[in-house]
Design a protein around this nucleic acid. Sequence first.
DNA 1: AGTTAAAATTAACGCGCGTAAAATTTTAAT
DNA 2: ATTAAAATTTTACGCGCGTTAATTTTAACT
Lengths: 343, 343
Amino acid sequence: MSKTKIRNMEEFSAICGISRPTLSKFFNDPTSVRRSTRAKIEAALEKYDYRPNIYAMNQNRTKTRTIGILVPYLADPFFSEIGRAVELACIEAGYSPLLLSSHGSRQQEVDNLDLLRGLKPAGVLLAPLGRDSDAEVIRRFGRDVPLVLFDANIEDAGEAFVGSDNFQSIDLMVDYLCRSGQPPCLFEMKSPVNPNANKRRAAYLDSMARHGQTAHVFQADGTGWDFEEIGLNAGGRMLADGAFPTDTILCSNDRLAIGMLSAAFGLGIRVGHREGAALRVAGHDDHPFARYTAPPLTTIAQDYSAIAARAASTLFALLDGGDHTPSREETLFDGRLVMRDSA
Amino acid sequence: MSKTKIRNMEEFSAICGISRPTLSKFFNDPTSVRRSTRAKIEAALEKYDYRPNIYAMNQNRTKTRTIGILVPYLADPFFSEIGRAVELACIEAGYSPLLLSSHGSRQQEVDNLDLLRGLKPAGVLLAPLGRDSDAEVIRRFGRDVPLVLFDANIEDAGEAFVGSDNFQSIDLMVDYLCRSGQPPCLFEMKSPVNPNANKRRAAYLDSMARHGQTAHVFQADGTGWDFEEIGLNAGGRMLADGAFPTDTILCSNDRLAIGMLSAAFGLGIRVGHREGAALRVAGHDDHPFARYTAPPLTTIAQDYSAIAARAASTLFALLDGGDHTPSREETLFDGRLVMRDSA
DNA sequence: AGTTAAAATTAACGCGCGTAAAATTTTAAT
DNA sequence: ATTAAAATTTTACGCGCGTTAATTTTAACT
């Protein structure tokens, strides 16, 4: 590696004997130049390590190679996992992913969208906050920038939505729970931030009716993203009060279930699907920690990588196709029942 | 909001009646212009919503307002929490944070450093991978860019290091465990990725000697970042084999402890500090989920926000001071004992 | 060999803004 | 009212690269 510092593409052009416009082509797509010149450039690159100025590159270009990825709350392992999967998909496709978190805040989500607009990304993959989102802002954003939503849907926002089929997954879980013991009560938040919660409640009511069972919905007070805390406190109170008419609780998501398990343990209530257990608890999402709870949590596995891959590939198709597809397509993946010991 | 789209600062200058250089000053520091002109500009901004082009702004500027934040593994809630704290500190100080994850990969860490170099950030806050890091690359990076390390130290890399005092915290935990029951065995990974693990082992040996106790170190095979899995498998085998000579296990970090608790539950071993329990398990870090394990995990709380705030303020001081401080300072925060039910 | 299409070169302009220097205006202080 | 300091305007250049059009070279054919 030679010590001479190269300041710009002009100098690099002089050194490696290739004209600047050709170099410009090369850096935007190495395969767009003849094999022999590509080899020359790459050889020179080895010796002198020059990299074009990112800011100057993107200044004039209308379409950047950046893909914005915005999730509602990165401290939630669900989103850090799916965010990571999406990042990798973008890298593989030759784009530069930029992962942002809204930290559960509506204002932060708007700010991040604003930032992204300034970054002129090729496209954006967005998992919206949900109820707290400014739907109109997101719809407007989708008119300016190729946008694919995942995890949580917002009507008519973006070009497509990729998520999981809550009706299928909840029905699957209800079916299993009814077959293997008492029918489940539903435990959820009164004001859920995530719109999937509403779908899951509807799915639960629907499924219970079809199973000829009486539905029981219990709602926890509390707002924000500290789901475990809410599950622990509200769930603990309900357990202590004997509020649940059956011995089986289906929690709207795993993080609530983790709190509920913690509450049950604190009250000395034995949880599990085996003889001698007093309570069954099931969750939804297959949270990364669900297999390490005590007892390990029976839950529905969302296909993280499939959702991530589909969201990414849908966006890439959009970018390549150029034309905006007339119909907004919604793709839902089936959940998979994961039977562990808690139910 | 008027509909006329403003393309550049020139047009905006014409519309609001302020010269372009003054506008340029304003956007780089609103307080640097006279109060009356600032009011005029902000009024026009309300009406026409113009934002300067990010790329053009940063192209010529030597010092960007971007602060790079690089953590080893964002899917680990410890790092997503501390990353978030650092992000907020940067925003408050008027910088634009950019949070990146190395996903546990050495190559990704190098790539991210490369990316950051191209972004010409004002400074970088780095929590290195640790053993897997390319120390020489990081040291070189620190010579080009103002760099502060946190969580894991690398000798002579960057201008400062902020972390927690493992000798203090482990001694505190050992002391508590010895006072309240049998002396602890140490459970750790044989090839820990994080250098804190080595410090903790040394601290454990040291502390046990000072307490006049025999040290017992148990090392789990397995590599990578799936600590819970490793704790569950290796810990479970050791428990089943009756490998531990005392009834108290100090895990090198909470994620191993979570795996160990899961293993103990699976084996029907009752964990806790109360009468009737067969095993005590303690961790280190106060992982966000540590309070929801069964039983809740006794651990050492690292002061996340203090470490984040200090790392950030150290970097800001560096940026303002201009001169590189001659001495590389290392700041260590004390850990706090969190007594829950597991030990 | 000649023909042609593909690729590279040359030359030149523009992007949107940072920034510097000099001239001018405004503000604050005497 | 006088003066000095501070803020703004004018003018003008440059950053590093994208991009285009016209020209020349190269490679792949008949």
